[in-house]
Each structure stands twice: as structure tokens, then as C-alpha cells.
Design a protein around this nucleic acid. Structure first.
Length: 473
DNA sequence: TTTTGAGTTGTTCGA
DNA sequence: GTCGAACAACTCAAA
């Protein structure tokens, strides 16, 4: 028979939602009283700093979560400090018997789980882990041999074959012993100048609805065009768990079933991206060394040059290559960059500027609101050709061609580089070819109002290929 | 057990 | 302009 507890803690982590939240749902089912708590990250503990945009979004989600818990009859307790100390303090006030929590994949989070579990064992408290971070449980997607996949395609085949279980509903009534938020040194969430429908999980679910209703049909063709608002914009919400990945996958299946036959449905194209997220979580869980070193040891060491002047130009968006600069400035302005442009800027930093991928990984984490340790690392290692299922080392993006292919009329570039507004689209991705007289006409002076290219791409490409060629080892 | 073919996102070159 | 080949090496799964 299931266990039953008098008082349980629900330890909210990256599951800032009521819907499809196994820890919350099970705690409510299996306990008389539930105390929902959130513990802020120790600023020194995560391997990356939390970007300002992400910090803000966390506050919004905490505020919204508290509002929604309030409607269920309880309040969120927000604390800062060492979790084991905090649990000790709480237990002195309320003798709770269990901690329900969502299992994480980052090494520092796993270390924390180990620490808390050991504390729990010593204090007679049950630790009850649950899934919900990914669509499918990590242990369900292994090779027949029992080893984790390291290549996406076979992973995806196995992943696709699994049944997606029906998402859990949100609890309506949550009974709490006392208002702990009033007793503890509670860190009240910053009030948000918005309604609860515009923050946290309601905002996440609305974003998801808009995507499925308005954008899904065109997603396969639009998703690669940064000038078009064609992607889901769910990444930051998924990262904090304001929306459940399983709910997103469930919705994809629903759309797929109602779609016409024929080619791969738009819902399947999108679902594949959700599978990439699961895949990179699995990689980080099973190969934590990816955070500090290459997933695969290359035959020849990559000769990173890490030229600080070039790196700074890349960070500021002043490389002279419009699509790279537009992307880097979008990142600084919005804390977000279109995925196609993430690939272009990453390829540029690593393969055209000879910079260690970790430099780019860190810069992205410093600025992305959706910064996700596993996905960001996977993406950077892929771009640098050091990762799992990496692209071939000789595949180097050409920002001019990429721009012409995916931002043909320059809509995206001009949005972030208004100084290029009057340049005709045939020249927008290679302004350096514009003769001096025409520069005046187009209102741009190269080297003054927009930089000249900081490197010669043809030359850098040849150098890179030459250095990396296996026969050169 | 061994072999074989396929594998997210590209570019350049020469016919 | 278009098209195919070349640019490696390795994992995985099916035959």
C-alpha cells in the first residue's frame, strides 16, 4: 500500500507550475498537509551565473506560483541558504516526514540531492524523487545494452516509440499545517505589475496555445528564418518548468493525430526539437564531463587562439558580418537569440575566430533568459564539432550565405542594426563590397558607422581546415 | 559475429 | 545557374 505522511514538503525546483507536477500531485495525494517551498540558488554554487533576464523571469514565476498556491489554500515559502540547514530549521517548527522533489541533471544539483538525501536519512525523513524535467524518464531511453545513447537519431527512434503518459491535472485544494511563510524569514516574491494570467505558468500555457494555434502549421519552414516570429518561444518557460515538457509533447501528439497524412507533420517536426532537449539532458546526466571538456577527444587538439580583441568584438556584435552582429546584439538587448543565429554566431566564434567554445557557452549563459546548461552546452559542442552527434569538423557556416539563405530581405539584420536600414537587400549581408560613393547614399560609412569585417573569412576557413585536417596530425 | 549504411541544421569547386 | 562530389571518422542498428 502507498505510504501516507502527516506533513510533507514539496521542494519546487525547475518545476514552477501546478499542472502536470508529479512532486506536487503525489505529495497532495499522499499527505495530510503539504508545505510548498522554494530555495534560491546559492550564487556561488551553479557553474554559470544566472542572467538578469532569467533572474527576472524566476521572480515572475515565483510570484505567479505563490498566487496560484494561494488560490489553492496555501502559500509558497521562499528561502535562501544551505538547503540542509533550512530543512533542519523547518523540521524544528513542523515535524515533516517527507520531501517530494523533481530530480535534476546538472552535476551541482545532483550533488545537492545527495547532500539533502543524506541529511534526510539522518533525520528520519523520506526523500521522494519524481520525474517531469523531461518528457521521458532518463532510464527509459537506453540502448538495448543498457548504455545511454550518444547519437541523436537512434536515441530519437527509441524515444519516439515510448508511450507518453497523460499529464497530471493541477490540484485544487492544498492543505497546509500553518502559514509557514509568516513564521519563517520568508523572502516574499517581488510583486509583479501584471495579472497572474500574464506571468508564470499561465503565461507559459498561453504562449504554448499561441504557438499551436497560430504558428505550428508553418513551423517547419518558418523556424529557420530569424526575421519571422515562427518559433515557439517556449524555451525559457521550459527551462524553469513553467510549462511541463510532457504537456507540450502531449499536445504535439494531439495535433499529429488530427493532421492530414503525407509528409512529416509540423507537430512531429516540433516534437523532434523537444526530443533534442531530452537528449541533451540525458547526455549531461550520463556524461557530466561535457561541462568542462570536449565530449569526444579529438584526434588533434583544437588550436584555440582566444584573441581577446576578436572575442570582445563578437560579444558586442561588432564583427562586420551583419547576421552575426544582429544576433549578438539581439542577445544583449533581449536575452534571447533565434536558434538559427545561435548556430551561425557559434560557428563564427569557434571556427572563424578560433575561440574555445567554452568562451561562447559562458557568454550565452550570462545573457540568455532561457539559458539551459544542458542544451547550451550541447549546442556549443555541436557547433565546435566536439560534441555528441557533432557536425563534421569541416562544416563551417558562412555568415554571408546563411544570411542570404535565411534572412534574404534583411528583415532580421535591419531590426538589430538600424544603421544598415537603407542598404538594398542584395547587399545587406555583404556591406563591405559597397563602393564609397554608395555608402554615402545608403547612409553608412564602413569602418565608422558599421565595422569592416574583423577577419577574412576565406582565409580563416582555409586556416581552420588546414589545421584540423586529420592527415596533418 | 561481421558487415553495411545512415547520420539536424554546410560550403566550395568544377563540370 | 544547377548539380554532384568531396570534405573524415565514428556510432549505432539492421541485415
Amino acid at each position: 500500500m502507498d505510504e501516507h505522511f502527516r506533513i510533507s514538503i514539496v521542494w519546487f525546483r525547475r518545476d514552477l507550475r501546478l499542472h502536470d507536477n508529479p512532486s506536487l500531485w503525489n505529495a497532495v495525494q499522499e499527505s495530510n498537509d503539504v508545505i510548498p517551498i522554494y530555495i534560491r540558488d546559492n550564487p556561488n554554487s551553479p557553474p554559470f551565473t544566472i542572467s538578469p533576464g532569467k533572474r527576472q523571469l524566476i521572480e515572475k514565476c515565483l510570484w505567479a506560483l505563490d498566487q496560484q498556491l494561494d488560490a489553492c489554500g496555501t502559500r509558497l515559502v521562499i528561502l535562501s541558504g544551505e538547503p540542509t540547514d533550512l530543512f533542519t530549521m523547518i523540521k524544528n517548527i513542523l515535524p515533516f516526514e517527507a520531501i517530494y522533489y523533481q530530480e535534476q541533471v546538472e552535476p551541482n544539483e545532483i550533488a545537492l540531492e545527495t547532500r539533502v538525501s543524506s541529511w534526510a536519512r539522518d533525520n528520519g525523513v523520506r526523500m521522494i524523487p519524481s520525474d517531469g524535467l523531461t518528457v521521458h524518464r532518463m532510464r527509459e531511453v537506453f540502448k538495448p545494452s543498457g548504455a545511454p545513447y550518444t547519437v541523436f537519431s537512434p536515441y530519437y527512434r527509441a524515444w519516439s516509440g515510448l508511450h507518453i503518459s497523460q499529464p497530471l491535472p493541477s490540484p485544487h485544494n492544498i492543505s497546509s499545517p500553518v502559514n509557514l511563510a509568516k513564521i519563517m524569514e520568508n523572502d516574499i516574491p517581488t510583486p509583479i505589475n501584471a495579472s497572474v494570467n500574464e506571468a508564470g505558468e499561465m503565461a507559459a500555457l498561453n504562449t504554448m496555445d499561441v504557438f499551436f494555434e497560430k504558428k505550428l502549421e508553418k513551423y517547419p519552414s518558418h523556424r529557420d528564418h530569424p526575421g519571422i516570429e515562427g518559433t515557439s518561444r517556449l524555451s525559457a518557460f521550459l527551462n524553469l518548468g513553467a510549462v511541463s515538457p510532457r504537456v507540450v509533447a502531449w499536445r504535439c501528439l494531439k495535433e499529429q493525430n488530427s493532421a492530414m497524412g503525407g509528409a512529416i507533420s509540423p507537430a512531429a517536426v516540433f516534437l523532434r526539437q523537444i526530443a533534442w532537449r531530452d537528449f541533451y539532458y540525458s547526455i549531461l546526466r550520463h556524461f557530466p564531463h561535457v561541462l568542462s571538456s570536449d565530449f569526444k577527444e579529438r584526434r588533434n587538439t583544437i588550436p584555440w587562439e582566444n584573441d581577446q580583441t576578436l572575442i570582445e568584438a563578437w560579444r558586442r556584435g561588432e564583427t562586420g558580418y551583419p547576421i552575426v552582429d544582429a544576433g549578438m546584439r539581439q542577445l544583449l538587448q533581449e536575452g534571447w537569440m533565434h536558434n538559427r543565429v545561435r548556430m551561425i554566431t557559434a560557428s563564427f566564434l569557434t571556427k572563424s575566430l578560433f575561440t574555445d567554445w567554452r568562451v561562447g557557452e559562458k557568454h550565452f549563459m550570462n545573457h540568455l533568459t532561457d539559458g539551459d546548461i544542458a542544451c547550451n552546452n550541447g549546442g556549443w559542442q555541436w557547433a565546435a564539432s566536439t560534441g555528441t552527434d557533432a557536425q563534421p569538423w569541416f562544416r563551417i557556416f558562412n555568415p554571408t550565405l546563411q544570411g542570404e539563405k535565411f534572412d534574404a530581405d534583411g528583415t532580421y539584420v535591419k531590426r538589430y542594426l538600424p544603421e544598415l536600414n537603407n542598404i538594398p537587400s542584395s547587399l545587406i549581408h555583404k556591406p563591405w563590397v559597397i563602393p564609397h560613393d554608395d555608402q554615402m547614399k545608403y547612409g553608412v560609412i564602413l569602418g565608422r558607422t558599421f565595422p569592416l569585417p574583423i577577419v577574412d573569412l576565406t582565409l580563416q576557413r582555409a586556416r581552420y581546415l588546414n589545421m584540423m585536417r586529420p592527415s596533418e596530425k
